[in-house]
Each structure stands twice: as structure tokens, then as C-alpha cells.
Design a protein around this nucleic acid. Structure first.
Length: 430
RNA sequence: GUGAUUGUAGCUCAGUUGGUUAGAGCGCCAGGUUGUGGCCCUGGAGGUCGGGGGUUCGAGUCCCCUCAUUCACCCCA
């Protein structure tokens, strides 16, 4: 039993799993380029107020899940980011990106931190990939980010996904609805659970998607948000659904979908996977026009975005066997040393092969030939190159194809030439 | 924060109503083959039985505490 363990809720990712991550990341980067999204990286921490203002102080994230600390006794509180949108918006506003170009399409793959009890599909350090489309108020913008997200899932081969979508209306609609909802809930106030009582004042909409059966009971008779939506909101939502339909993206309208962050308006959506456990939300997002103003912008910045949990993506793909054809990079040549006295000369050969662009390894531990061969086999090396007194005397090498077990003697130059033909040094990008 | 679950070798796990030196498979190392891997055979290394306390002649096994794990609630990716 090792003395030290990883911090609760964090985990190590070892080389075999890195293959899976790189595969997913590769698809994300490729499709982002296809859709014209550009990568952004922001610091892992921000001033705590940023999250309090943006995510909302009534949310669980801000209320109890943030890792916050004081960098020095007199300093401002800093928080390890629990989500990306606030930081990206802060960066965009600080640099005044929209003045340089009025439409910004950004994406990221980043690490986030939330102080929760870990369980399947939930960690304290986790990562999300996501996109933010700033500066466009057209419903085509939300449709664009949803399409990008669903396209990634499709290329990765995921099955069993459900896209649920709703509209929360604009700020005026929500204000009117909030009042109506409060009037309806007021007589039930004493029956509300603690969380719902808290939300009654701050954000009663969130009582709607409570999973507490008793709350659900109370809420069934509540006025419907949909009935309070103005013409503008309805038109916007219809357009979003139209764009999705046209692109063949299946969805379910769910009028109870609210989502936890305070800054959403208009469209909100969520994708769940049947391959996941209790934490089955693979990703979600929406429209958040009011966020910029909340962060001090003089005018509204229409914005749409989504975030997808990378670990959950990974779990879902593993469950569905979507990584079966991934193979670790194997060296082309494993140089085998007959006697350790010849090691230095063998190293020179290794260097020449590497300089020629041929991936080459050699046993550095001074082990027996048998152990070296076993290692070559374990690494799935394509060839073994034997360096012994005979070879050095004749100036030739013995090269063995480890798959076919055929071996032949030839000059080192011939080997290099052979590889140059079969694996070019600068392979064309696919 | 709440509930439940599981902690025995590097990994996956056995361990009978408490009873001698705690086992298996896989993996690792070495030898069989002193210049040749995989397959096979033989051998070897590796364990404070999560930790602490208690009951007992005797505890991996029973009791208490503690730490950690996992799953679930809450909420979210």
C-alpha cells in the first residue's frame, strides 16, 4: 500500500488511456476547425467574485462546491474555476475581442474543479470541452453550437444519446413567469424542502426540475413557463428547432428543463447518454445574453455555448467499445546488444537510426539478450537489430522481423533506405 | 453534507463454525536455449491481511473506532 494517494476526486491518466484522450481531442480539434471555432486557454483560477457574479450565488456550484483560497492574507479571494464560460467571457471582455471582430467563435478543452463527493462520472478535478459563440443573437448561433457538439458525438460513434431542449424566454418573460410561479407556490411554501425554500426567493424556476418526488407533485399544477413566453421568445425557439430539424438532429422538447446556472436565457439544452450511470448528462448549454452585462459590459453580448464532460464522454465510449482499434505507437527497431561491452557501439547505431527518423529503442538497463527480446516483444517493436561481435567485424547488421521471424544481414545504410521508403519522415497530415 | 458498499501479493480475487509456516490465476524476474522474443516447462521474488484498539489460549475471520474506496442522494459535465 503506497503511502501517498491521489487527492480524493482526482485521478491519474496513464499511457494506455492517453491514447483514448488523444483520439477524442483529435476529433474535437478537427471538427472545431471544420466549424471555424478557435481554441482559447484561460487561467485555471479567477477572482472569486467572477464566479459569484456569473454563475449565481444561489447555485450549488458557488454555494458549496468551489475551491477558494486567499493567495496572501491581504489578497483577494481566488477560486479554481468550476466552469469555463465565465472565464472565457471575462477574457473576451478584457481584451475587447468583439471590437476587433464582432463575431467570436471560441472552443476549449480544459480542467475544472468542483468540491463534490466523487461518484461514477463525477470527480473533483475533471475536464470539459466546450464552445462559446459570442456576438450573434440569431437563433442560428445556438443551432450552430448544438450542431458542432452533436457532430463530435457522431464522429466519435456514440449511440443512445438524447438531446432535450427548452426555452426559458427572455428576461421580461422570465420576470413575469417568476412572479406567477411564486404566486402559485406561496400557499405550498411550508411544504417545500429546504433547497426549494431557498430557491423560492432567488430563483424559483429551479424548483421545477427538482428530482424530489414531493416537489414534483407540488409543481405539476404550476403555471407553465411556455404560456408566459412572448412572441420574440417563441419565434426564437421555433427557429432553433427548425435549424436542428433541417440538419437531421433529433431532439425532445422538455418544458421542465431549467439547468442550474443563473445566466441562461432563451434556449437551454442537455444531452444524456444511456451508457452512463446516475450522472448521465454528457453535456449541456444554452444562451446567456445577460452574462456580459453581469460582468460589467456596457452593452449586452449575445452568446451561446455548451460544455461536455470529457470523462463522461470517455466512460460512455469505453462502455460502447469505441476504442477497440486504438494501438499504442510501437518502435520500428529495438536494438539488441549481445554483450554489454558492445553497448557504446550499439548506441551509435541507435543514434544514426533516430537521426534518420526511425523510431528506435535500446535496453538501457544492461539486461540479458532474452530479456531484451522480451522487452522488444512487449513493446510490440517491429524489428530487432542484433549488434554482436560478428556484425561489428563484418560491418553489417542482423535485422529480424519480429512478426514473421525472418532475419537477414545487411548494411545499416540499406536499413535506413528501406525505412525511408516505407515511412516518410514528414508524413502528410490526414 | 447524508446513506450504503468494499478494503487480503503489482492486478483480479479465494480464505470453510476464530485454530499451525495466508493461497490461486494473471503479471514480473530467472533458468531450460553461455547469439534470438511470443508458446511450453521449472524455479524465484513479492503480503504491516487499510490503520488503531478490544474480546480470546489463539483474530485475515468477532466487536468498537478511524482512514480510504466505490455506488447512490443533493446537484451537475
Amino acid at each position: 500500500m503506497p503511502h501517498y494517494q491521489v487527492v480524493k476526486g482526482a485521478r491519474d491518466i496513464f499511457p494506455d488511456e492517453i491514447l483514448q484522450w488523444k483520439h477524442i481531442e483529435g476529433v474535437i480539434h478537427r471538427l472545431a476547425a471544420l466549424y471555424g471555432f478557435n481554441e482559447i486557454r484561460t487561467p485555471v483560477f479567477e477572482y472569486t467574485e467572477l464566479f459569484q457574479r456569473s454563475i449565481g450565488s444561489s447555485t450549488d456550484i458557488v454555494g458549496k462546491e468551489m475551491f477558494s483560497f486567499l493567495p496572501d492574507p491581504a489578497g483577494r479571494s481566488i477560486t479554481l474555476r468550476p466552469e469555463m464560460t465565465a472565464g472565457v467571457m471575462r477574457a473576451a471582455l478584457q481584451k475587447n475581442l468583439l471590437a476587433a471582430a464582432p463575431v467570436q467563435k471560441l472552443y476549449y478543452i480544459s480542467e475544472l474543479f468542483r468540491k463534490e463527493r466523487p461518484q461514477a462520472g463525477r470527480q473533483r478535478q475533471f475536464s470539459q470541452f466546450g464552445a462559446e459563440l459570442l456576438g450573434v443573437s440569431s437563433p442560428a448561433a445556438v443551432a450552430e453550437v448544438i450542431t458542432f457538439m452533436m457532430h463530435v458525438f457522431e464522429v466519435l460513434g456514440l449511440q443512445g444519446l438524447t438531446l432535450r431542449i427548452n426555452t426559458l424566454g427572455n428576461m421580461d418573460d422570465r420576470k413575469r413567469y417568476r412572479e406567477a410561479l411564486r404566486n402559485y407556490l406561496a400557499p405550498f411554501y411550508e411544504q417545500l424542502d429546504d433547497a426549494s425554500k431557498e430557491r423560492f426567493e432567488k430563483n424559483p424556476l429551479r424548483i421545477l426540475d427538482s428530482k424530489n418526488p414531493e416537489m414534483q407533485e407540488i409543481v405539476t399544477g404550476a403555471p407553465k413557463l411556455h404560456d408566459y413566453l412572448g412572441r420574440e421568445s417563441l419565434d426564437d425557439f421555433e427557429k432553433v428547432l427548425f435549424y436542428l430539424s433541417v440538419r437531421g438532429i433529433p431532439f425532445q422538447i422538455d418544458h421542465r428543463l431549467v439547468r442550474g446556472l443563473d445566466y441562461y436565457s432563451y434556449t437551454a439544452f442537455e444531452v444524456t447518454s444511456s451508457a452512463l450511470g446516475a450522472q448521465d448528462a454528457l453535456g449541456g448549454g444554452g444562451r446567456y445574453d445577460s452574462l456580459a452585462v453581469e460582468l460589467g459590459s456596457s452593452g449586452e453580448v449575445p452568446a451561446s455555448g455548451f460544455a461536455v464532460g470529457m470523462e463522461r464522454l470517455l466512460i460512455a465510449m469505453q462502455k460502447q467499445g469505441l476504442f477497440s482499434d486504438l494501438e499504442a505507437a510501437a518502435p520500428s527497431v529495438f536494438v539488441i546488444v549481445q554483450q554489454q561491452e558492445l553497448f557504446d557501439q550499439a548506441l551509435e547505431i541507435v543514434t544514426r537510426l533516430r537521426r534518420a527518423g526511425i523510431s528506435t529503442v535500446i535496453d538501457l538497463a544492461g539486461r540479458s539478450m532474452k530479456a531484451q527480446l522480451r522487452e522488444a516483444n512487449r513493446m510490440n517493436a517491429a524489428n530487432a537489430l542484433f549488434v554482436g561481435s560478428d556484425e561489428l567485424a563484418s560491418g553489417k547488421c542482423t535485422m529480424k522481423d519480429l512478426r514473421s521471424s525472418q532475419q537477414e544481414e545487411c548494411l545499416l545504410e540499406e536499413i535506413i533506405e528501406k525505412f525511408r521508403q516505407s515511412e516518410p519522415l514528414n508524413p502528410p497530415r490526414s
